[in-house]
Design a binder for these strands. Structure first.
Lengths: 188, 188
DNA sequence: CAAAAACTATACCGAACGGTATACTTTTGG
DNA sequence: CCAAAAGTATACCGTTCGGTATAGTTTTTG
């Protein structure tokens, strides 16, 4: 068993359930079945552990969003593809999504928020570019790509947040409804 | 100067900027110009301090949302009134709103999330009841009050979150646009 | 005016914090 | 086969954590 991967896995579980600040290095080491110097050998510091964790997942996530946010001339299809990518990633990595969501809304001076900021910005930009591309076909959207990107991601995150707290299920039915509601709102 | 109120004020600033877990009791005491036993005299524990802080603000906030979420037969007006109440409270209490937002998305086993849960549920319920009342006049909405409440609050929180990070301004223009977009999405 | 209640500070508790110096074992490469 | 590099553990560092015992000072109240 790979120690490094195992530490990352245990850290993700703990961070996502209790929060980065509330989890001690000692605790991560114990859950991983190793000792602190081993953890420090691989990650250098507690913050280094968090960075490694974020990078290992976010690279994959951002790549998927990048692919899904390509605009091919049909906005409804693009929105649905994008929403599906978000829902699918969240369902495949619920613990990570929970942690990422908490870090995104974490206080600005916290360690977590600082590290997360740049990673989530890249993703946000992909979506904004999709709306910018679509606005060529939908004149009345012009100049509002940023707001659309933010609110669309916001709605998706709202749904995923509810799903993580078992307040709803991420069915295909919900996805289509949410996308349709958003899309009709734009056309107004 | 009232010590109790002063401690609450300083705690709010620190919690909202650095996060509940990352702030020590000692730190709050120093900023407040008092010592730890004084703080413990008033609040009993660190968690007691957080509870007192939440209750002192949330009572006011929930009352305002309760008032603003009354449905008087006109959904567009209700939505706008409600959105205005959210924006106004956030603008009047930016530090508190930042903290409350962070706590809402905090990991489920963290102290903050447990304390926040019940408070935010009351508010959520007000909004859901508004949509339920409105669905009598809008048949096609029936059965989706919960989803509408969640996504509407989600959009508002998205906007407020962006405003807190200086990514946009909460102008009346934005408010009307967001409300209109949401409302047209419903009618679809 | 005295006694009880409320308030505040000094000094301290054990535990946990993030992090490391040192040494020992295992693996790797010439 | 040996040496260098990588990996791991024991034991410890100083600091800060949340919380408190005790005692002194105000303020309120009978």
């Amino acid at each position: 068993m790979d120690n490094r991967a195992n530490i990352l896995h245990c850290a993700l579980q703990l961070f996502s359930e209790k929060g980065y600040d509330a989890v001690g290095v000692q605790e991560v080491a114990e859950w991983s079945g190793i000792t602190k110097p081993t953890l420090y050998h691989y990650f250098g510091s507690k913050l280094g552990l968090l960075k490694a964790l974020l990078e290992s997942y976010q690279a994959d996530f951002n790549a998927k969003i990048q692919t899904a946010s390509q605009y091919h001339g049909d906005l409804p299809i693009s929105l649905e593809t994008l929403a599906r990518a978000y829902f699918q990633f969240a369902q495949e990595n619920p613990a990570y999504y929970r942690m990422q969501l908490a870090l995104y809304f974490a206080p600005p001076d916290s360690d977590g928020a600082v590290v997360t900021a740049s990673l989530s910005r890249a993703q946000y930009q992909c979506v904004e570019e999709m709306f910018a591309a679509a606005s060529k076909d939908h004149g009345n959207m012009r100049g509002r790509q940023a707001l659309y990107a933010a609110t669309f991601i916001g709605v998706l995150n709202t749904c995923i947040g509810l799903w993580l707290n078992h307040a709803l299920t991420l069915e295909d039915d919900l996805l289509r409804r949410v996308v349709r509601q958003f899309q009709y709102g734009i056309y107004s």
